[in-house]
Amino acid sequence: MVYKSIFTALTDKALVKPLLEKASALAADYGAHLDVLCLGVDRTQVGYYYAGASAAVIQETMERTKAEAEELEELAKAELTKLGGRWSTDSAVAQLGDLGRHVAARSRFTDIAVLPTPYGEGRGLELEPVVEAAMFDGQVPVIVVPDAATPSAKPKRVVIAWNESREALDAIRAALPILITAENVHITVIDPPVHGPNRSDPGGMLAQYLSRHGIHAEIDVLSKTVPRISDVLRRHASEIGADMIVMGAYGHSRFREAILGGATRNMLEEANVPVFMSH
Results as ranks from 00 to 15, higher is better:
Gly97Tyr: 14
Asp98Ser: 12
His213Ile: 02
Gly120Trp: 13
Leu96Glu: 07
Gly196Leu: 03
Asn266Val: 04
Pro141Phe: 11
Ile259Thr: 07
Ala94Ile: 09
Gly261Gln: 08
Tyr209Val: 01
Asp231Cys: 05
Gly196Lys: 04
Gln139His: 14
Lys13Met: 13
Val246Cys: 04
Ile259Lys: 07
Val158Ile: 03
Asp201Asn: 12
Pro197Phe: 10
Met244Pro: 00
Pro177Glu: 05
Asp98Pro: 00
Ser5Trp: 12
Asp147Ser: 15
Thr11Met: 13
Gly196Arg: 02
Gly196Phe: 04
Ile259Arg: 12
Asp137Trp: 12
Met267Gly: 00
Arg108Val: 04
Met1Glu: 03
Met62Ala: 09
Ala148Glu: 11
Glu164Asp: 13
Arg228Tyr: 14
Arg265Ala: 15
Pro141Cys: 13
Lys82Cys: 10
Val93Lys: 00
Val57Leu: 14
Asp243Ala: 07
Gly204Asn: 06
Gly84Glu: 05
Leu83Gln: 05
Ala32Trp: 02
Glu73Thr: 01
Asn272Pro: 00
Tyr30Lys: 03
Asp220Pro: 09
Gly251Thr: 13
Ile190Glu: 09
Arg64His: 15
Lys154Gly: 02
Asp90Ser: 15
Thr61Glu: 12
Ser54Trp: 08
Tyr50Pro: 00
Ile219Ala: 09
Ala258Tyr: 15
Ala207Ile: 03
Gly203Lys: 03
Pro227Glu: 02
Val57Phe: 15
Met135Phe: 11
Thr65Arg: 01
Arg101Thr: 09
Arg108Ala: 14
Leu115Met: 07
Val221Tyr: 13
Asp243Trp: 12
Glu68Ile: 03
Gly204Trp: 07
Arg157Ile: 03
Ile112Glu: 02
Ala182His: 05
Lys13Gly: 11
Leu115Trp: 01
Ala53Asn: 00
Leu125Gln: 09
Glu79Asp: 08
Glu74Gly: 13
Thr117Ile: 09
Gly262Val: 10
Val232Leu: 03
Pro116Ala: 15
Ala174Lys: 08
Ile178Ala: 01
Ala237Asp: 00
Asp201Ser: 11
Arg86Lys: 15
Tyr119Gly: 06
Thr150Tyr: 05
His102Asp: 07
Arg166Ala: 10
Leu96Gln: 03
Met62Gln: 14
Glu239Gln: 13
Leu99Asp: 00
Ile58Tyr: 15
His33Cys: 00
Ile180Ala: 13
Cys38Glu: 01
Ala28Ile: 01
Arg235His: 15
Ile160Gly: 03
Ala182Glu: 01
Lys13Asn: 09
Val226Leu: 06
Ala51Tyr: 13
Pro146Ser: 15
Asp98Gly: 08
Asp220Arg: 08
Ile112Val: 14
Arg123Asn: 09
His236Gln: 07
Val130Asn: 05
